[in-house]
């Protein structure tokens, strides 16, 4: 459909406004992180990378990053494993309570995270478990594993059950089918589920707040510092966290692209 000049202008303006709305806050955090001043004021008078140096040298920061990273990696690994088997139960096999299972497993996603966090904290207390980053892993899993399962299930729904039957018919046992057919076909779903799990855990605040106990993740620390004792270390770490996430996503895409390219070259050689 041809668009008139005036329509095009409106579209451009609209597009720019939406992008600005989404990104100006992030950019301003970036600016704040390179300000030399102790408090955030605009316009920034003197720039400095001092806080980045400080962040990299700080033992608090490295402790925070270690905690957040440990939680996120564990949540990712466990979520992907749970999602793989959960999605198979969800989408591939017909069994008596399947539809009930499908609904129940998705329910935690719809709980407000603060409510979920509070409920888990009360539950841990009543069991006499002292909250640490390990309980946070459990808390994150309650919310993230269903999302990962859903992502893998969508993939599982989209492939023909006859593929597994055909493999069996040609002599493959259950384990071989899993390795040769099911796993490779679900791989794109598992990769995106893993990415989501990592990012959701890495950036999670409400669940961590309730369930980490004396330990602290990066988002928790950022919040605590905003409430009392702001320093430019806050935006600095914020920026570092965002950059870290971006690097992860780009790396994942690069790996996916590399794998595809490999397959294609092996397909055209000869």
């Amino acid at each position: 459909m041809p668009t008139s000049r005036s329509t095009r202008i409106v579209l451009y303006v609209y597009g720019v406004l939406v992008i600005a709305f989404l990104y100006i806050p992030l950019v301003s955090v970036g600016f704040a992180s390179v300000s030399k001043a102790r408090y955030l004021t605009f316009p920034i008078k003197r720039y400095s990378t001092k806080w980045y140096g400080e962040a990299l040298g700080s033992s608090t920061v490295s402790e925070l990053l270690t905690t957040s990273m440990t939680v996120a990696v564990l949540v990712t690994v466990i979520s992907v494993v749970v999602a793989f088997f959960g999605a198979l139960a969800f989408a591939r096999y017909h069994w008596r309570f399947r539809t009930t299972f499908q609904k129940l497993i998705l329910l935690p996603i719809f709980f407000p995270q603060t409510v979920l966090g509070l409920a888990l904290l009360m539950w841990f207390n009543s069991l006499g478990i002292i909250p640490t980053w390990k309980t946070a892993v459990v808390a994150h899993l309650v919310w993230i594993a269903p999302i990962a399962t859903l992502i893998v299930a969508i993939r599982a729904y989209s492939f023909d059950p006859a593929l597994e039957e055909a493999a069996r018919d040609m002599g493959a046992g259950t384990f071989t089918i899993l390795r040769e057919i099911t796993l490779p076909l679900l791989m794109p779903g598992l990769v995106s589920a893993g990415l989501f799990a990592f990012l959701l855990s890495w950036g999670n605040f409400p669940l961590s707040l309730f369930t980490t106990g004396a330990d602290s993740t990066l988002p928790e620390w950022l919040y605590a510092k905003m409430v009392s004792g702001y320093s430019p270390l806050v935006p600095t770490l914020g920026v570092m966290s965002v950059v870290g996430s971006f690097v992860l996503i780009i790396a994942a895409f690069a790996v996916a692209r590399l794998l595809r390219a490999n397959k294609e070259t092996s397909a055209v050689q000869d």
């Binding site: 492939f159 023909d160 006859a162 593929l163 039957e165 055909a166 493999a167 057919i181 490779p184 076909l185």
Partner: peptide
Amino acid sequence: FQSLALFPH
């Protein structure tokens, strides 16, 4: 098979 069930990967 009716769908042929060729492995797409």
